[in-house]
Computed example of a mutant assay.
Amino acid sequence: MTTAYSGVGLPGVPAEIYPPQQDSHLLIDAMTEAGIVANARVADLCTGSGVVAVAAAAAGAARVLAFDICPRAVQCARLSAIASGANLQVHRGSWARAMEFAPFDLVVANPPYVPQGSLDDHRRIPAIAGPAQAWNAGAAGRSVLDPLCEAVPRLLAEGGTFLVVQSECSDIPRTVAALQAGGLHTAVVAEQLIPFGPVMAARSHWLMEAGLLKPGSRQERLAVIRADAQ
């Protein structure tokens, strides 16, 4: 399992867009190290800045389609593609929109996965973390992960691969089980321990009280989960 990330990023990502961070880079490294991008038809879900889609295009994908529900993210990803010279298309929408273009040889996703409590803590989180829509994912952190895992088998071509990155606080084994239940061969293929970022730092006390992080934690474990269609 890889424990490093390449540091690939995009300059000039505006504050209202989720900036490329360790999870984005861990996903990129897992994608490129798998050796499955060249000549593949790729979908990047929850693309945000477009950094993963740009990396897929640079790795030789035959076609890259990126999707995001946020119009500002769509605009940012399109500008990122132009600036990098990447050959990709960016569409507004979720995996439901991606269904229109399926099947794909490779689907990648860095979805919102941070659990949120009942109290509004946005004022405690600096703007550099990006918009709340990019990380808030319900009380268990799975409001996006659960329906996404259910949809994946319908997005993949025969022999296709899904790669998703998430935090331990949103239940990595549950994602593995959900993808296995969809008939996919599933495993954790990359992990990394990172210090709390601004969102996790603001919520760490609540996450520990809720049993979503171990007491006394100062780091979180990120994981990339791979699921392959038979």
Score class of each variant (00 low, 15 high):
1 M>G: 13
2 T>W: 15
9 G>T: 12
10 L>N: 02
11 P>K: 12
12 G>S: 09
17 I>G: 08
18 Y>K: 03
27 L>V: 04
28 I>M: 13
30 A>C: 02
30 A>F: 08
31 M>N: 11
35 G>Q: 11
38 A>T: 13
43 A>K: 05
45 L>H: 08
48 G>A: 09
50 G>Q: 06
51 V>R: 05
56 A>I: 02
58 A>E: 15
59 A>R: 14
61 A>T: 01
63 R>G: 12
66 A>D: 08
69 I>F: 07
72 R>M: 15
76 C>T: 05
77 A>T: 04
79 L>N: 12
79 L>P: 06
85 G>N: 02
87 N>L: 15
91 H>P: 03
99 M>P: 05
100 E>L: 12
100 E>H: 09
103 P>E: 10
113 Y>R: 07
119 L>H: 14
122 H>Q: 06
124 R>T: 01
130 G>Q: 11
134 A>N: 04
135 W>M: 08
137 A>F: 09
138 G>A: 09
141 G>H: 00
145 L>R: 00
152 V>W: 05
154 R>V: 00
157 A>N: 10
160 G>I: 01
161 T>N: 13
163 L>K: 00
168 E>Q: 11
178 A>G: 07
179 L>P: 05
185 H>Y: 14
189 V>T: 05
191 E>G: 03
193 L>N: 13
194 I>Q: 14
195 P>Y: 00
196 F>N: 01
203 R>V: 02
203 R>K: 11
203 R>Y: 09
205 H>E: 15
206 W>T: 00
210 A>W: 06
213 L>M: 07
214 K>D: 14
215 P>G: 02
215 P>F: 06
217 S>Q: 08
218 R>S: 12
219 Q>W: 02
220 E>F: 10
221 R>H: 09
221 R>K: 12
223 A>G: 00
